[in-house]
Structures are given as C-alpha cells and as structure tokens.
C-alpha cells in the first residue's frame, strides 16, 4: 500500500516519537509513506475557529498531496480534522474554492482523493487480522485504557470511520496485541488541550479526571492517537501532578508505539525514550504473567495473534 504522508508540525517537534513510530510501524505493515513536499501548518486548534483561514491553509496541503496521486494519511487528529474539513469545503463550496484556487494558482482535484487518519488506515485498510500476523510478541501485562479524545471521532460529518459516542477501533487494536483493554467511560471526553492557554487550571482538572478514571479501571497505561492529547497527558503530566499535589505516574503510549512493541520493534525505532513519562516499568511488566495464566492459554495459539475476549475482572 502506498500513501502520501502529512506529519504536521508537532510530529517534527514535541511528538517526534509519534513520527518515528508511525514510520517504523507502517514499514512493517507494508505501507510505503511519501511525505508531501513543502507542507505547511494546518492552522491547528489556534485557527480552528477562524474557519476560512484554517481551511485555506489546509487546502494547500491537500493540493500538494494530490500531486502525488496517492491518498493521504495523517496521524494527528487535529490536522486530520482540518484537512478533511477543507477537502469537503473545496469539493462543495464553489465560492470558497474560487478564493483558494486564486491564491494558489492551481485547480483542486475533485476526484476520488481520500484523507484518512492513521488509525483508520491501520484498522480498516490494513486490517487487524493482517496486522496481527506481523505481531511477534504478546503484550500481556499491559493494562491499557483506549483514549480517543475529541477530533479523532468527532464531528462524524467529517470523521466517519468509527462511532462518535462509543468508538471501538482502538479497543480492538489493543486487544489484538495481547494487552488487556479496560473499559473506559472517558474514552471520548475532552483532555482540555485547547484550554491550556485560556484557563490552565480547567485544562488540568479535565486531564486529572481522565487519569482518575483510568486508575480506577486498573490501568497501567493510556493509549492515544493524537499529539495534542499526548502533549497534555504525557508532556504536562508533571504539571498536573504539581497543580493537584498528587502522583499520577502513568505512561501514555501512542498506538503506533504499542503495536510497534507487539511487532517486536526496538525501543530506539519507537523512540520510547522520548516520552516524558518513562514507560520503563511498563515495558518490564510485559510477558511477566503468572504460571496459572500461562496454563489457561491454548498451546496452539501464536503469541499475540488472537484478539482475546476480555471478561470484566
């Protein structure tokens, strides 16, 4: 499978481990990524309310991607939302399209060009069954909560690949790695990312609520698919601890790092040393199941190949 790749600003900065693990995992999954040339910022959450500017900036990236003749994959939920929203407007709003085509001196192609989030590509295009065949190591010992956040599945008129109220794709992917996927009532609740500059204390309250719930569920790790969520949950976790005078100490992995581990890829390739909250203890817990648990496993089962049905414990 060949796809055009838009990393977005954060994947070349604070979310570099998401970029590295995306590339490593895609390669193993048989996806050839071509980074689009001279891409620009999509406007992020800062221009999301300046609708025409956000869509104009995003449309330029779409036009660059169209030059490759390939569909476009995006790992960031915010970029993915912005570029998809722009694509829709460029295909349906003639006045807006006229403005942007005039600014860029180029025509927007109204063909089958598709923009997809990386999670959608992994779960629905590559498919969990084929991905599982690449898994070499069971991640038993990891007890994860799946965190989707906001823009990955909302609004459903832009993001159509999963249920906006109770999405399942990340759940299914976690289960396929052999890790335990715990029920998480906060899976689509906001992490507070866009409140960081307007009201930091509110942002931290929302973040802490997610961790409280994750801990109550018995999780030792959170799995995400967005660099903004990761920036708050991992990058600012120490600030949240300080503000609430508490200890959280919960590693937050990108889903690409998680499946990379199952594929047997190295810590270096997945840049696990770049996460702000060290996942060292978590990595040590993998494969340390008790003897009793081992007996339960069917002897013919390939490690990690079977998405186990989890019963609430």
């Amino acid at each position: 499978m060949k796809l055009a790749y838009y990393p977005g600003c954060t994947l070349h900065g604070t979310a570099r481990e998401y970029d590295a693990s995306t590339k490593a995992v895609s390669k193993t999954a048989g996806i050839e990524l071509t980074e689009i040339e001279d891409w620009n910022c999509c406007g992020a959450l800062e221009a999301i309310f300046d609708k025409e500017l956000s869509m104009g900036l995003s449309a330029r990236n779409n036009m660059l991607a169209q030059k490759t003749g390939l569909d476009l994959v995006i790992p960031c939920s915010i970029c993915s939302h912005n570029l998809s929203r722009a694509d829709k407007a460029m295909k349906t709003d003639e006045v807006f399209r006229g403005k942007i085509e005039k600014a860029l001196g180029n025509k927007y192609k109204n063909n089958g060009f598709k923009i997809k989030h990386l999670l959608d590509v992994m779960v629905n295009d590559v498919g969990i069954d084929s991905l599982s065949q690449k898994f070499k190591k069971s991640l038993k010992g990891i007890k994860a909560v799946p965190y989707y956040g906001c823009l990955l599945v909302r609004p459903s008129e832009v993001s159509k690949f999963d249920n906006p109220e109770n999405p399942q794709s990340l759940d299914n992917l976690i289960k396929a790695t052999g890790a335990e996927c715990l029920p998480f009532t906060q899976k689509t609740k906001c992490c507070g990312g866009n409140l960081l500059m307007s009201k930091q204390d509110y942002a931290f309250i929302l973040t802490k609520k997610l961790f409280d719930e994750a801990k109550a569920a018995g999780a030792n790790c959170m799995v995400v698919a967005c660099p903004m969520c990761h920036m708050l949950l991992d990058g600012q976790q120490s600030m949240v601890e300080k503000a609430h005078n508490t200890v959280i100490n919960m590693p937050v992995l990108y889903f690409t790092q998680l499946i990379g581990l199952a594929m047997g890829l190295g810590d270096k390739e997945l840049e696990l040393d770049k996460n702000m909250v060290s996942p060292k203890q978590l990595l040590e817990s993998i494969g340390k199941e008790t003897k009793e648990e081992k007996k339960v496993e069917k002897p013919e089962t390939k490690a990690g190949a079977e998405p186990e049905k989890e019963v609430a414990k």
Binding site: L45, I48, C150, R154, N194, L195, K199, Y202, L206
Partner: peptide, 12 residues
C-alpha cells in the same frame, strides 16, 4: 466565550 474547549461534543 473563551472557555469553549472545541471538543465538538455539542456539535455532534
């Protein structure tokens, strides 16, 4: 006016 977290839940 500046406290909307742009989570799109109400939009949905």
């Amino acid at each position: 006016l500046w406290l909307c977290a742009s989570c799109y839940l109400c939009y949905e």
